[in-house]
């Protein structure tokens, strides 16, 4: 089965962001494919490389990075939602004349068209909402 996930929830304040990760990991280990994870709304905060959770809390950015590396998953962050929340890649940091880019490695900023494509090309689309 080819899945795509849509994550709306903040990795800091909502359990749903962690549920999405558990679902992805479980599905991959069972032999399914995750075509794309699309982060939208506060979900985009997961791609902020400056997130530094306390030692005894999970680090969702690192967990997604490791999973994406192991299984070659597309981690796409909605560019409009990300830029207004201060998650910027090099291009956007230059465009908006900000001090630095902070998009975590393994994540990519792109438009909502990537969500439309994921819907078109996946067998199941599962939303994890805040």
């Amino acid at each position: 089965m080819k899945f795509s996930l849509v994550v709306h929830s903040s990795p800091i304040s909502q359990q749903s962001a962690a549920t999405a990760f558990r679902f992805a990991k479980t599905a991959l280990e069972a032999g399914h494919e995750i075509f794309r994870v699309f982060y939208y709304g506060d979900g985009v905060l997961v791609a902020n490389s400056q997130i530094a959770p306390p030692q005894d809390e999970i680090n969702l950015p690192e967990m997604w990075q490791a999973l994406a590396k192991q299984y070659d998953i597309d981690l796409v962050v909605c560019i409009a939602a990300a830029v207004k929340r201060g998650v910027l890649d090099d291009n956007e940091a230059k465009r908006y004349e900000k001090d630095a880019a902070n998009l975590a490695a393994g994540f990519e900023l792109s438009g909502l068209g990537q969500l439309a494509e994921a819907i078109a090309l996946s067998d199941r689309v599962i939303t994890f909402g805040a």
């Binding site: 089965m1 994890f128 805040a130």
Partner: peptide, 19 residues
């Protein structure tokens, strides 16, 4: 468990999230 969660999403033709 989580494995059965994944199986349920396969057995059903679509998933609707209420949040």
């Amino acid at each position: 468990d989580d494995n059965q969660f994944v199986e349920l999403t396969c057995q059903n033709v679509k998933v609707v999230s209420w949040y």
